[in-house]
Amino acid sequence: MIIKQNRGRQWLDWQRRMVTVAQVIGAGACVWLLVALFFGEMGLPRYLAMRGHAAQLDREILALRQENGGLRGEITRLQHDPAKIEQLARERLGYVRKGETVYQLSPESAKERLLPEGR
Rank of each mutant, 00 (worst) to 15 (best):
G52C: 10
G28K: 01
A55R: 14
R59W: 06
V19G: 04
E60I: 07
A22M: 12
L71S: 03
A36R: 06
N68C: 05
V35K: 09
A29K: 02
I85F: 01
V31Q: 02
L37R: 12
H53C: 07
W32T: 14
F39I: 05
G69H: 01
A54K: 08
L34D: 05
E41N: 12
A49R: 07
I61D: 03
T76G: 01
G26N: 14
L78N: 06
M50C: 12
G28N: 07
A54P: 00
V24E: 06
M42R: 10
Q56Y: 05
W32G: 05
A54G: 01
D81F: 02
A29M: 09
R17K: 14
V31H: 02
I25S: 10
V21M: 15
V31K: 03
R46T: 15
A89Y: 06
A27R: 12
F39C: 07
A49N: 07
M18T: 12
L33V: 09
G40I: 14
R59Y: 03
I25R: 15
V19F: 01
L78M: 14
R51S: 12
W14R: 15
T20N: 09
R51E: 13
A55V: 10
G28L: 05
R72I: 08
W32C: 08
R65D: 01
V19Y: 03
V19N: 06
L78F: 05
G26C: 04
A63H: 03
Y47L: 15
E67I: 04
A55S: 13
R46K: 14
R72Y: 03
Q23M: 13
Q56G: 06
F39Q: 13
L44V: 10
A89C: 08
I61V: 15
R92Y: 04
Q15D: 02
R90Y: 01
A55K: 13
R51Q: 14
L88V: 03
P45H: 04
A29G: 03
Q79F: 07
Q23A: 08
L57Y: 05
H80E: 10
F39S: 11
L62H: 00
A89V: 00
L33N: 08
L78P: 00
R59Q: 11
L62Y: 03
V24R: 14
G70H: 11
V19L: 09
V35N: 02
V21G: 06
A27I: 04
Y47W: 13
H53F: 12
Q79R: 15
G73Q: 12
A36D: 10
A83M: 11
W14Q: 15
G69D: 10
P45W: 10
M42Y: 03
A36W: 04
R90W: 02
E60F: 03
G69L: 08
N68Q: 14
A54Q: 07
R59F: 08
L37C: 11
K84Q: 10
L88N: 06
W32E: 13
L37T: 11
R46H: 05
E41V: 15
L34A: 12
L34P: 00
R51V: 12
L34G: 06
W14D: 15
A49D: 10
N68P: 00
R51N: 12
L88I: 05
G52E: 09
A27Y: 00
N68A: 14
I85D: 02
Q15V: 13
L64I: 06
A83K: 12
L88Q: 02
G52I: 09
L37D: 04
A83P: 00
E86Y: 04
G28Q: 08
Q79W: 09
R65I: 06
M50N: 07
Q23V: 10
W32Y: 03
L78S: 04
